[in-house]
Design a protein around this nucleic acid. Structure first.
Lengths: 132, 132
DNA sequence: TTAGGTGCAAAACCTTTGCCATCCC
DNA sequence: GGGATGGCAAAGGTTTTGCACCTAA
């Protein structure tokens, strides 16, 4: 599939590339709308999906009501707070040996891995001592 | 929160404990219905959420339309096929040092981590040479 | 010119919720 | 008995889709 160059697709990609956060489709829609006021939500969803398929952006492997995306290209790990849900990029170097090891063990073709740490971020840690 | 003992909750837990797969809520519902034909989907969803909160089952951190659950207790890693979506448990030992390292780096409280490998499973690998 | 893209709105889906009857402790 | 839970159906929220109209190449 070859992607055509449209203002809408450019804008969606631009937003994802320009932030360091891990936005939902709706957030992207709201931001893009400032530049292209007539863009529709369907177009944003369509483009997010196509950009994911073409590998230009990634969908994060998080459960939850809404999907999250990111434009950052290099592989990296994440931390997601169990209380506030905030997602942080980590500096920990990616261990590509793991992929090889799992490939050998399983006979599968391993392309990459997602590693997500869970717990409490600094802010939530210093607040109420609730559980979960 | 202490959970009361009901036939419905028992049945949901039993299904999750008895399989090695990573079922969706709807799959659990279909199976439980064989034993309790009058159980409602709402009850299954409610119980899955409560059992997750109480720690008796886990929700998998996978993106996608439907949530997936598992009854297995010990922490372990997963492989998810990019073509067929099948999920496999891995034998690779869990590296708890990682949690400590990230905790030091970030100042966050790290409880655990999810590690998911992506690629092609053996079956899909031997089939059509499509991409994605 | 034309296949691919957009806007709009409706549809599709998964999940949650309100309400009242029922059941567990 | 009384609060937790279940059944049912409706509501909620996110994502997809059909279709007629554009538009990039």
């Amino acid at each position: 599939m070859k992607l055509r160059h449209t203002r809408q697709r450019e804008a969606v990609l631009e937003v994802l590339r320009s932030v360091h956060s891990h936005p939902t489709a709706d957030w992207v829609y709201e931001v893009v709308k400032k530049t292209l006021p007539h863009i529709s939500k369907g177009t944003v969803y369509r483009n997010l999906r196509m950009l994911c398929e073409s590998g230009e952006v990634s969908e994060l492997d998080f459960s939850g009501a809404m999907r999250r995306f990111e434009g950052r290209q290099e592989s990296h790990y994440h931390f997601r707070c169990r209380r506030c849900g905030e997602v942080f990029d980590l500096d920990e170097p990616v261990n590509h040996d793991l992929d090889r090891r799992i490939a050998e063990q399983t006979g599968f073709e391993v392309a990459y891995h997602h590693l997500v740490f869970r717990g409490l971020c600094r802010d939530c840690r210093s607040k109420q001592p609730d559980q979960q």
